[in-house]
């Protein structure tokens, strides 16, 4: 089974955000595999171990993304592909077209990705690719079982559980609860250094920048207003609780 995993390198979720000269500061930031993509990588490795085949992780991003791809290789993926080209704009339409240019030339049995990325959080790219490839998809899956040429999936739909059977090839996006991603072993890290990792440009993919022009653009970037510490109540707990309810009704005007 040829399994492909869409992966994005993101800021660690414990990082604070700072803005300088209209962009987000990346200096000194710890980068990780987008947590939802990590579930996808883990699932791909488990399925390959059960069913045979290979796992290819693929990313669009700057050169630093190599680190995240190497981590996925160290977890157990077989190959990695980085599409890195400054001419690819930060726009989901464009990114999905670039990924599609690569994937449409592969023999894809199963395509996995994360439910969304914890940076931009648009949740578009994976599902757009399913549409571009003309394959079905299920988003936000918490269970994925392959039975021949179909998949049995559990989808988390705002807390409800939808059980469905999907004909392969198909795309699934991972939700928390799908699995517990492994840490790369020392042996895995050593092996990863020798695994194939290719870097492609738009020219390699045979597409011109005019085919992937951005359909949206950023006008402004800002930080949310700072929240200040409010009132810590004092006294007996019962009195504090009474005071709190009073404050909510009379000062905050809620409830």
């Amino acid at each position: 089974m040829n399994i492909y995993v869409l992966l994005k390198q993101t800021f660690d979720t414990e990082e604070k955000i700072a803005i300088e000269n209209g962009s987000i500061v990346e200096d000194g930031v710890k980068f990780i595999i987008n947590p939802y993509d990590e579930y996808a990588v883990e699932q791909a490795i488990q399925l390959r171990d059960d069913l045979g085949g290979s796992v290819t992780v693929i990313s669009v991003g700057p050169d630093r993304s190599v680190e995240a791809l190497r981590t996925a290789l160290a977890m157990g993926a077989d190959e990695a592909v980085l599409i890195s080209d400054d001419r690819i704009p930060q726009d989901e339409y464009a990114v999905s077209k670039a990924l599609h240019a690569y994937l449409s030339k592969q023999n894809v049995d199963l395509l996995l990705g994360g439910n969304f990325s914890v940076d931009n959080g648009g949740g578009q790219v994976a599902i757009r690719i399913a549409s571009l490839l003309g394959i079905p998809h299920t988003g936000s899956v918490t269970k994925l079982e392959i039975n021949g040429d179909t998949a049995l999936v559990h989808r988390d739909a705002e807390g409800d559980l939808e059980v469905s059977v999907v004909t392969l090839p198909a795309l699934f996006t991972a939700q928390q609860g799908l699995n517990e991603p492994r840490y790369p072993s020392l042996q895995g890290i050593m092996k990863a250094k020798k695994k194939p990792l290719q870097t492609l440009t738009l020219d390699d993919l045979g597409i011109s920048p005019s085919e992937i022009t951005a359909q949206t653009s950023r006008v402004e970037l800002s930080l949310p207003p700072v929240r200040n510490a409010g009132k810590i109540l004092k006294g007996e707990l019962q009195d504090q609780v009474r005071e709190l309810v009073g404050l909510l009704r009379n000062e905050a005007k809620v409830l």
Binding site: I17, V118, P224
Partner: peptide
Amino acid sequence: LYAGKAFEK
């Protein structure tokens, strides 16, 4: 962006 650590227009 980043779940509300920043905002973009």
